[in-house]
Design a protein around this nucleic acid. Structure first.
Ligand SMILES: [Mn+2]
Ligand SMILES: [Mn+2]
Ligand SMILES: [Zn+2]
Ligand SMILES: [Zn+2]
Lengths: 139, 139
DNA sequence: AAATAAATTGCAACATTGTTGCTATTATAA
DNA sequence: TTATAATAGCAACAATGTTGCAATTTATTT
């Protein structure tokens, strides 16, 4: 996996402490994280607004994608699909929301089946949120 | 379709003007509506908080179900599935969010296929939001 | 019809998530 | 080292949602 500072460099971002840390965190946890979570984690390292702007900036460059979780909170995760760009994100996998630990993970291996819509409906994007118990929380 | 006042009666709710109007509206539009939308529609007929409480009350009795739309806003729609109760909602159909008109509809006829999750993940609920253009907005 | 009890409503206050404008700071290039 | 463009911080605001409590209203009972 490419190192965070190099990624920032290639995208024309500056290598500030908080940007490096946020990106490294996203790479490490392999989960979809929210701004409030980042705020807790990097307590006085950056302002709330800065975190929101970092996440938006990363998303616009296509290195992370944004999803709404079951609580209506925005979460961001690394794009593993190779073909994500600034304007086209490919995110056709299941987003699993654990009711026990609250974690949200992209199940890259579980693709959303093709859905046939009624006549005159056209599809541009989709998000399948599944709630349940994750492997870690399984008794 | 059962009339709104009768439904309220049977559920032990009082037949207040706003409750009747909200329920009739939900029956008529056949869409998933949000509190902000109801607030605009029934401008000075009820307080914001009252609308939130009406929606929660209806949901708890199993006559409407709650979904998060693509913007993270809670929406409520009539339960057509016959087997919805206070604690078990059956909502395994597609929720279509039109990017043109902003409407959200339950596509009762488009069921979400069975998804096979990885080992040790268990499913309790799911919500498939699809974004695109609805039949009304199709050019 | 009047009294009562319980459900419903309104209001104020608050919490959380998210956005915008502007200024100050800082990383990088020249 | 200096210049400049990007980044960050702060304040203010918006939107959605929740809670507590007092006032009102519906429906029941007398
Ligand atoms: Mn994803
Ligand atoms: Mn539905
Ligand atoms: Zn879990
Ligand atoms: Zn439409």
């Amino acid at each position: 996996m490419k190192k965070a500072p190099q990624i920032l460099d290639e995208l024309g971002f500056r290598k500030t402490e908080i940007r490096i840390k946020v990106l490294e965190h996203l790479q490490k946890v392999e989960k979809a994280v929210s701004q409030p979570e980042l705020e807790k984690k990097f307590n006085n390292l950056a302002d709330r607004v800065t975190l929101y702007r970092i996440l938006s900036a990363f998303e616009e460059k296509g290195i992370i994608h944004k999803i709404m979780d079951v609580h209506g909170v925005a979460r961001y995760a690394m794009c593993n699909e190779k073909h994500c760009t600034e304007h086209e994100h490919h995110d056709e996998h299941v987003h699993f929301n654990c009711t026990e630990c609250g974690d949200v993970v992209c199940l890259d291996t579980v693709k959303v089946p093709i859905i046939k819509l009624p006549k005159d409906f056209s599809l541009s994007r989709l998000n399948l949120n599944i709630e349940g118990t994750c492997d870690n929380c399984q008794k």
